[in-house]
């Protein structure tokens, strides 16, 4: 029986079992030769990239928009975060968590202030070509619930912990069927 191809964790190419380097990107595969994914979910995690998740176009606000405008956009758009952009360039992110933690004091005053005062500048980011396992790692390490997916300086999507849960539940039921 032929064994399963070895999937390179860096570029996703298939290699024959036993090779030391990935044929397309030269990533060392020696560790992987010893272990095989233990389940189909684990195999999916090694293969699938952030770009395989549904795209959620970011809700963008400008740095001079008021806190009230940003909050209303999040409420109306039923999203957990807005991306703060200057032209095409993302300069920050503001989440539901930030609203709770940072908007203290007199809310009537705070609501009129610019969102740039309360946003997180230079948030953690990922690319569509990053592995889903990498996105999970980032979220777990940083305690993030949202990660902007970047194309250069432009945010093209925002993935959330909810997308990850959905991705996993789909894989779990696939496996059980």
């Amino acid at each position: 029986m032929l064994s399963q191809p070895l999937i390179c964790p860096a570029c996703g190419s298939e290699n024959i079992v036993g090779v030391e380097q990935c044929g397309s990107c030269q990533q060392s595969l020696t560790e992987l030769s010893l272990k095989k994914p233990r389940s189909s979910v684990e195999a999916s995690l090694l293969r699938d990239v952030v770009g395989d998740l549904p795209v959620h176009a970011p809700l963008a606000v400008s740095p001079t928009d008021t806190v009230a405008a940003a909050l209303s956009a999040m409420d109306a758009g039923r999203v957990g975060c807005v991306v703060v952009t200057e032209g095409e360039r993302m300069i920050g992110i503001f989440t539901e968590r930030d609203a709770l933690v940072r908007l203290t004091g007199d809310l009537a005053t705070v609501r009129t202030e610019p969102i740039s005062k309360y946003m997180t500048a230079h948030p953690a980011r990922i690319a569509a070509s990053d592995k889903i396992a990498f996105a999970i790692h980032q979220m777990e390490l940083g305690g993030y619930r949202h990660l902007p997916v970047m194309e250069g300086e432009r945010c093209v999507s925002v993935i959330s912990i909810r997308d990850i849960l959905r991705y996993l539940t789909e894989r779990i039921s696939d496996g059980a069927a």
């Binding site: 964790p9 860096a10 684990e42 070509s129 990053d130 396992a133 999970i136």
Partner: peptide, 9 residues
């Protein structure tokens, strides 16, 4: 799977 992954390809 998760910790041994290089950050970028």
């Amino acid at each position: 799977t998760i910790y041994n992954l290089p950050p970028a390809s």
